[in-house]
Nucleic acid binder design. Structure first.
Lengths: 218, 218, 218, 218
DNA sequence: GATGAATGAGTATTCATTCAT
DNA sequence: GATGAATGAATACTCATTCAT
């Protein structure tokens, strides 16, 4: 599969979770902030070093290359994105075997909103680089596709079988949901178009209502 | 307003549409191709010069700075995006005074699909830089907001008055439509996730159906 | 053959003999001096730039890489080493069809002494890098072997047929001559062991006498 | 004399030959291998540390500087080169008072061939650095001159007095022998030009015959 | 004695920009 | 208008060396 490299990297990194130095900690934190703010390509290692109050060499002693620093920033996020979503959200909700598709959507949305809210800077980085960085896109997209979309499709099929959803190809449904939710996250956390005073609860319900009333079989 | 600079630039440029030299033509064409492919930050002026078979100095003789070359690439697209959309699409459709919201949506979607399809490279550039380039985002987003969203809101209100749409704040409706359509364009033209063999007609209808059946008051 | 790359480079460079800028001239001259003095690996491009009173960027505008600058320094020397030696020296002397092996040796020695004397700095560079630079050695040595040694062997065979030379494998003879003459040049021009006041004429005659008749008193 | 420093270093080191730690042993071994392979300038201390499976700090704890590590590698070889040659080879052969110059040559050649064969990596290092490293050359060359050449001259004079050698200045003879033998070792152990299947015995005899009687057929 | 984290000066190279021709 | 040589600041990265543990 095309995500071998990424998976390997994730696994390798998980194992490497020795003791992170204070400086390492500081470097990653600073890199996250700057990458999120100005993009990977527009952030120089010397800038990171200065902001992290660390010698530039220290960055390379620990991460070898700037590319690798980006990975070190992104991978834990990816790692947490996928299995969490897959195992915790999906199986949990599904195994309850109760609730309609709307409940599933609500749970999914809230779970992911919470996760991204707590990692908004890394989310910004991932989204930006996904568009800007060919290499990364080629590795991440199939990885996402294989892991998330695949499971969503299964859920959708389940609910379709129960007669809760309209008869559009599952992959089309899934894509529209994904676009809508993803677009919501992007416009909120990356573009930051908001009037700050959003009633989050209400927005979510509107979103769900929008999605549901489009999909519900009548 | 925050778009003064942009508007000024557009106006200035429109006036400047004297005779473009062959070389200028070639430079812009090449820049479009390369910016779309690898992103603005990852494309060097020397690269552009080489690919356009032009001396590097020539680029700067005409455009002064690389930033300005980006603007020269983007602005005509922006210029055409907005007024066209506003004047041609909107007033045209609305003045007909015929058709339901679905028809409006369909017309809008097809019109924009056509436009972006013919300018997909510049669309890629705009989307990528919108996320990556702080300056540009700060200039373009309010410009979009003021020009497009504002008009869509008016249309939505019209249809709401006619009782065709559910009772969600217009700006929320508008945002969800925008996210969905925008997301569709981005995933299709920028991320290029597609199975190439899409039945475009069907996809559009699914999209409209999805949007409508969520929004239609029942 | 293994010298394709080198030959190609030589040919390419010969064609490129456009007009060298003053700065280019200065860069090459300075590089020659510094490489000869301290070796390629121990000379930094910034050093060269400073000594040549040129911006560091200028070096890279013209030569692209430091490696390529080394080649630009070495190749003309190599180019002149080989064909000169082959065509001028060899055929000239041989075609005269007069003279014994000793005369040939004397002509060869004087010709090469003259050549190296006029290019002693580049000779130093070539010798030093031949030992130090794996890549270069792998390209240059077979090139030398194919071009020079091969011809010397032919000459040796000619004289062997005339009964002037002892019956040792030609390639052994050639190697000993080469070692002796080469060693003479290296110790004189690279190691610079000399008492400066050498009677060159006498030294050459001693060398020839040694090669021809050895050390044993008869 | 200019070799004070070197002699002092040798003496100092000889005294220091206490207990070498395992790690020290490993460091020197690894350094020898890597210096021989890629040259001193192209080998980094971190590389050595990694290959020797030692912390980088350990190298500096024992050797202080990289330069000093090079000396620690080279000096024992130098130390063994000189006195061995002087005392064992020379006096031994000479004291026997038997044998002609040819026998002396043969003994010398075989002795040195054996020594270098057993230390070929260090020999490579010494030769390469002798050309590349100004400092080292300035220290080593006079040292060699004072110790080896000086004794060879004495031997040559002895045989000249016996009427075995031609009437060329002793120092010229010595230099030619040295060039020839040195060149043989360099081309064999450093340049490694060989067809691997050399008949060593025969080669040596050819070399001796050449030195003694030259190339001319009689 | 041994470690390895930290350093900062140094390296080759890139790049937007200037300017004389 | 067009060129392309020249620039120098900036970039990612290397490396010998130091030092607290």
């Amino acid at each position: 599969m095309s995500d071998d490299k990424l998976l390997d990297a994730i696994i390798a990194q998980t194992k490497l979770t020795k003791k992170q130095t204070d400086k390492q900690q500081k470097i990653v934190e600073t890199a996250i902030k700057l990458f999120a703010e100005k993009g990977y390509a527009n952030t120089s290692t010397s800038e990171i070093a200065k902001a992290a109050m660390v010698a530039e060499g220290t960055i390379f002693r620990h991460y070898g290359t700037k590319d690798n620093l980006l990975l070190s920033v992104i991978l834990p996020f990816i790692k947490d994105s996928i299995p969490t979503m897959a195992e915790e959200v999906f199986t949990e909700i599904m195994s309850k075997n109760v609730g309609c598709f709307e409940d599933f959507l609500r749970a999914l949305l809230k779970n992911r909103l919470h996760f991204i809210n707590e990692n908004r800077e890394i989310f910004q980085i991932v989204v930006k680089e996904l568009l800007y960085n060919d290499e990364l896109r080629k590795e991440l997209l199939p990885f996402f596709a294989d892991n998330i979309l695949h499971r969503i499709t299964k859920v959708i099929n389940t609910y379709k079988d129960r007669g809760e959803l309209i008869d559009i190809p599952s992959h089309t449904i899934q894509r529209m949901i994904f676009t809508l939710i993803g677009g919501y996250f992007v416009s909120r956390f990356v573009l930051q178009l908001d009037n700050c005073d959003i009633d989050e609860e209400a927005e979510i319900e509107n979103l769900i209502r929008f999605i549901m009333d489009g999909l519900r079989k009548q």
